[in-house]
Design a protein around this nucleic acid. Structure first.
Lengths: 336, 336
DNA sequence: CTGTTAGCGCTTTCAT
DNA sequence: ATGAAAGCGCTAACAG
């Protein structure tokens, strides 16, 4: 059942049916009604492949995620999709599992014109490749940005400052030995920025950097548990932990509680991202929230304006983070 | 840059380029090399829209999820995608947010031939619509099945039996008052089946059904927290809680711990799904695991066989669940 | 082994 | 207001 069949059944031409499908006004009400009736009866759906091929646009966006394991992405997706849908686009997700080969496979969906643009979270291909893609296709980096030479659209928070402020808070509480869980920095600019925030905060407070307090580990609760075990086994264990993800902070809390060390009393724990687990753990987790709703919306807006105007210059949008105080850090003034 | 340009640059015809692109062997090594060089130099990517239009297949599958908030889907996606990719298909995700309108919007991606088939988790449109779609397009229901009249492919566990067995375990522990968190049954066959399992287990043990112990609530930890508050405020509170999702069980544990009631000692808590949170909470959660890896793989296999043979009869695959014993339930023999 | 031709389903001139 | 015709980029049938 194609447009030709519909035209035949309605006693008109494909061109007219196409006009009706596309809400072109230059069609007599009579013909329109006839055609709509036939479409209704036959349950006809225009084939997007033909349509997109001809019109060179698919009205679809791709959100490329490293994983859907992390609930962090859920809110971002929600507002991204909402904004896109309100503007006539639908949104699909591709999951790369942090594998560059899979990532390239899904970028092909963009290259082959099956989607009009991509919002990319945590790429694993090189910045050179990203730059090449972004120069040619509508692209927006979400929650990260490259080194300053990279000329791309991006939406993210000021990761350095966020960590600086979180650290500042811990330092004001009186902590001098603060453990940190970060990632391996490879291709993840925000990890580098966060590390910078950590060190600058120490420096500003006149606290010497102690390498044994820095743990590079995976982003999951088990890794947080193990990292905490390691830190607490030090001759001089930390009195606070800055975990650059909530799941690892949850693992830290688990380890501490199991060993009779009270988070928020004996050792303070600060998370990052404000995902669900931070409310589920006991004690609940003090953390740094990224404005997920705004990130999704801004990313979609940036992408659409680039799609609708190929000449639109790239833009970087920095949104503000927020410290969320819960139970895993003591109140100011309480002694260490 | 299209296939014609490549042909011109390589001094050959589009047909030959197409053959090379599609790894058709009937091409001289000489020509092949020439063409490949041009493709390499020009970074040419064939336009899938043209290709799919012509070949009437997109080599893409769609996984339709109600949300990506729930980590339950992550493993299923992983094995689904892996199987699909190994068979030359890529997988995109659509998120319906449990909104029938959005769901229909994304089903259009199927109707308009942009994907070859759909794996559908928790639909919100009617079973009639589902049946119509499934009769016409490659379709597989994941983690659910309709009423018995529904003739579709599906992969799921035996939800009734899973709950029956979990309840049986609690009953053997000596419990006679067992609270349950379920959903609102509307269009979710597995909730009906689970309710059946709950009641049959009571019946088999000669325990009368007590309606005040059944709580219908949302699938999140806050709802579980509130539901527990309600149950524990009863004149005769339950001694065990069967939560038909881990997140609500986590909320239950939180409430109990906060109120000095020890899960696994004073009140037993059983979850469902075995997602990450069940290992993060303290005490860790006894739960019913669904074979997520197998579900994803089977679903992909079913879908692909239906795609490759349109006449393939529908199949229902029931996979086995498993009780995972952790700390939130006491050991057999311990007194209540 | 290779090129020519037709056509997938649609939209868009360009006539009328 | 409508239809004929061309063409988006590709593949498949056919001829050579």
């Amino acid at each position: 059942m194609n447009i030709k069949d519909i035209a035949r059944l309605a006693g008109t031409s494909p061109a007219t049916v196409s006009r009706i499908l596309n809400e072109d006004m230059r069609v007599s009400p009579q013909t329109r009604e006839n055609v709509l009736k036939v479409i209704e009866q036959t349950q006809y759906k225009p084939n997007s492949l033909g349509r997109n091929l001809r019109s060179r646009s698919s009205k679809k966006l791709l959100m490329m995620l490293p994983t859907i394991q992390n609930p962090f992405y859920s809110d971002i997706f929600f507002s991204f999709e909402e904004y896109a849908r309100q503007n006539g686009y639908s949104v699909l997700i591709a999951v790369t599992n942090r594998d560059p080969e899979i990532e390239r496979l899904y970028f092909d969906v963009l290259f082959t014109k099956q989607v009009d643009g991509v919002a990319c979270f945590l790429p694993t291909i090189s910045f050179e490749e990203i730059q090449r893609i972004a120069s040619e296709y509508p692209f927006v980096a979400c929650c990260w940005r490259g080194f300053s030479e990279l000329d791309i659209n991006y939406v993210c928070i000021d990761n350095e400052r966020a960590v600086y402020e979180a650290m500042q808070y811990l330092i004001r509480l009186g902590h001098r030995r603060i453990g940190v869980f970060n990632g391996n920095y490879t291709g993840r600019m925000y990890e580098v920025e966060r590390e910078k925030g950590y060190r600058k905060a120490l420096e500003a407070a006149g606290i010497p950097y102690a390498p044994e307090l820095s743990v590079i580990c995976e982003y999951n609760h088990r890794a947080g548990y193990e990292a905490t075990k390691k830190l607490m086994a030090l001759k001089k264990p930390p009195t606070a932990i800055m975990s650059l993800s909530d799941d690892r902070a949850a693992g830290a809390i688990k380890y501490l509680v199991e060993h009779g060390i009270r988070p928020g009393v004996d050792v303070d724990v600060m998370g990052f991202d404000d995902v669900m687990v931070s409310e589920v753990v006991t004690p609940t987790l003090t953390t740094v929230a990224q404005p997920r709703h705004a990130i999704g919306r801004e990313a979609a807006a940036l992408l659409l304006s680039r799609i609708e105007d190929a000449a639109a210059p790239n833009k970087g949008v920095i949104l503000s983070h927020k410290l969320i105080f819960r139970e895993s850090t003591r109140k100011p003034g309480e002694p260490i």
